[in-house]
Nucleic acid binder design. Structure first.
Lengths: 223, 223
DNA sequence: AAAGACAATCATATCTGTCTTTTTTATGCA
DNA sequence: TGCATAAAAAAGACAGATATGATTGTCTTT
């Protein structure tokens, strides 16, 4: 039920000059080129998810976004499902990579968790992921792909935090609460800001409050 | 980009016997009948939003859900947009009504706010509303319909709370924080439970914690 | 008889998956 | 080295399915 489908004549995509097929220069092995084209399509899919939402992320739109024909696209991904699957896997690994990077930083105040995750949530990857999660609610196939990854993420999220803040090991109840609280509140905020429910000015006080909450839950400090 | 469209032959809807048009018995005035049919279509739309999501809430599906032909449906709503608009208005008023009902209850602990709103969020109306809100992110027409209502809801939410708990008037900063915190966290939880990210077992501890938080923000009590 | 409620059908548009054709790239052999 | 050829990549065309809005027809209520 797309509201008011504005019919815009799509501009004709003129074929690129033969030699310059992608963004990279020079000759490569075809395998590498194929991998790059696949990556390009996946990136285009993420952009489409952000721009148009899951429902309106169609194969023609992705192909156009990637600067390819649908035919070429179907050469790399046999169907739309394969593309979505690959995109989900990529998004998942990107989230995990970003988290690991953050963990490698030297200094770790307990409240860094808040700032770090909040920054993650500002990125396109999260918006795309949420689009998929919402769609999965009414699409069991999508759900079966997404669910295990969501579980794995929550698990690694906790494992990461547990490792970074060993002082929390003594009260696992507080720890679990702090983790759930952080994840839920921050994600809720991100969604609310995106979907227009929440004024952006209210973000900072909320972050501060959450940080204070978490600090209060650390056993040695106060909880 | 619907994943794996399972093609089910839709059962042919046999025309109902002329006299029994809906769920109601007996002859009625046409005006009343029309109003009832419109209501039936709106209810069907809400059910479709919950069952299929916004993207897959199509005019044929709504008509089928309402037990009407598409033609009849188009007689009552000139196009899909009109139906969605009417549904949004209905959902909005339903949310406000539910809130007003809750406010009429005699006893009001401060933490009642949490329980009351959490119960609201379990209803289909919220799921439907969130489907619309997510769709509105990438649909400016839908957003222009939804945004003012979201603002009005937040405003009334606050006004209601302010009226119920006058002891909060002395520290508006705490009040604003408590309101935003409640709304964001509870909605985040509801969404997270729906979209499979959050284990239902974690709900109760979170509610308790939020209640404690709010109590701590009330000026006379502790904040 | 007029108007309202409802049903059925039509034309158009778009997305999807498949198939065919063209172009590019890599490689084997003279 | 240079050309021929196969494989990969890309493009284009096609048919099936479905959604949408509009039109037309039928029955019932007023």
């Amino acid at each position: 039920m797309a509201l008011s489908r504005t019919r815009i004549a799509r501009p004709i995509r003129q074929p690129r000059p033969a030699n310059e097929t992608g963004r990279e220069k020079g000759p490569q092995l075809q395998a590498a080129k194929a991998a790059q084209t696949r990556a390009r399509l996946i990136e285009a899919t993420v952009r489409c998810l952000v721009k148009y939402g899951y429902a309106n992320t169609t194969t023609p739109k992705v192909a156009e976004e990637a600067g390819l024909s649908r035919g070429a696209m179907m050469h790399h991904f046999e169907n739309g499902t394969a593309l979505i699957k690959a995109t989900i896997a990529e998004l998942h690994e990107k989230r995990l990579r970003a988290f690991r990077r953050a963990a490698d930083k030297p200094v770790h105040e307990v409240t860094d968790l808040v700032e770090t995750y909040w920054r993650q949530l500002q990125k396109p990857a999260f918006i795309a992921f949420h689009e998929l999660a919402v769609a999965a609610r009414t699409d069991s196939d999508l759900a079966s792909i997404l669910k295990p990854l969501q579980d794995e993420f929550a698990e690694k999220f906790n494992a990461q935090a547990e490792q970074l803040f060993p002082e929390w090991a003594s009260s696992p109840v507080n720890f679990a609460l702090a983790m759930t609280l952080s994840q839920t509140l921050l994600e809720g905020m991100a969604i609310s800001v995106q979907t227009g429910g929440m004024d952006a000015a209210k973000v900072e006080p909320m972050l501060r409050h959450l940080e204070a909450q978490i600090a209060a839950l650390v056993p040695t400090t106060g909880g």
